[in-house]
């Protein structure tokens, strides 16, 4: 336990070395809390209150109200869980598919390698968002998990190819060779030798997959192909846009809040990758 605490402290110290990255890290923590703890802070009440439409920030409604007089802060607190859940799931599945296919292609070689590589090349070339639109209109995305699965199914191409390339080059390195000569089992080689060396890269890719999942998710909601029953930030942006942000300058506040949230979330995630690079890069780590 004590060891874990010490290594946690060390990790924090390393992450703090890159100031911008650390701010991103704090931002990410904030949004995770907002999304998963937020719903417990304020009950969701989506009943219309026609007396307080578009109030703008007031004491009763710190972030103002929407076109039906509903509190925006409340909606923000409740609207993150789904967005971030889909992003996390999609990123996780993307990494899993990419790592499996990448490692398989690199280790197996031959026909499997050619086929997987060709598949990856095709899936990279197809523009993702139109593909998602087509898929979304044919397969009704009923659950957030379903959406995450589809996002991962079309998003693994680039990562798979880099993982394949990295495994190929790592395979040739001395310590892996040494492990093989020593007769250590293949699981040892993968989990003790190869994986730790790719942790930095994979963790950064995880974050980047999250950002593209958020991009696609909100985009799909905006074009109305994902059912809007659930309440989330993407739905808020869409409603704000469709309910008169263009014509009613008081409505702009309603649009601006979820947009700011999405932008800050994306910025936090992307800047956090700088600290992650330092954290998981053994060379940088030893250097301090």
């Amino acid at each position: 336990m004590k060891n874990i605490l010490i290594s946690l402290k060390d990790s924090l110290k390393i992450m703090m070395r890159n100031k911008v990255g650390f701010i991103g890290f704090l931002g990410t923590i904030f949004f995770l809390l907002l999304a998963f703890v937020g719903p417990y802070l304020m009950p969701l009440n989506m009943k219309a209150d026609l007396n307080s439409i578009y109030t703008g920030p007031t004491i009763g409604h710190p972030l103002g109200t929407d076109y039906q007089g509903r509190d925006i802060l409340m909606q923000i607190l409740h609207g993150g869980r789904e967005v971030i859940y889909v992003a996390l799931m999609a990123a996780l599945l993307t990494i899993l598919i990419a790592a499996t296919f990448g490692a398989l292609a690199a280790v197996a070689g031959g026909l499997i390698d050619t086929v997987l590589n060709g598949l990856a090349e095709i899936i990279i070339t197809i523009p993702h968002f139109p593909l998602l639109l087509v898929l979304a209109s044919l397969i009704k995305f009923k659950s957030p998990t379903g959406l995450a699965v589809i996002l991962a199914a079309i998003g693994w191409g680039g990562l798979m190819r880099s993982i394949r390339a990295q495994v190929l080059s790592l395979k040739e390195r001395d310590y892996v060779e040494a492990a093989r000569v020593l007769g250590l089992p293949i699981s040892h080689i993968i989990f003790r030798e190869i994986l730790p060396n790719m942790l930095s890269y994979i963790s950064v890719q995880f974050i980047l997959s999250m950002t593209s999942a958020i991009y696609a998710q909100v985009g799909l909601i905006f074009l109305g192909v994902v059912p809007m029953e659930q309440h989330n930030w993407g739905v808020m942006i869409t409603l704000a846009w469709n309910q008169g942000a263009l014509f009613n300058s008081r409505a702009q506040w309603y649009l601006l809040v979820p947009i700011t949230i999405i932008v800050l979330l994306q910025l936090s995630l992307i800047t956090m990758t700088r600290s992650m690079e330092e954290l998981f890069n053994p060379r940088l780590r030893r250097g301090g």
Partner: peptide, 12 residues
């Protein structure tokens, strides 16, 4: 890192 549709909305 800002989604392009967000920039588009903000411009409008």
């Amino acid at each position: 890192s800002i989604p392009n549709y967000v920039i588009a909305m903000l411009i409008v």
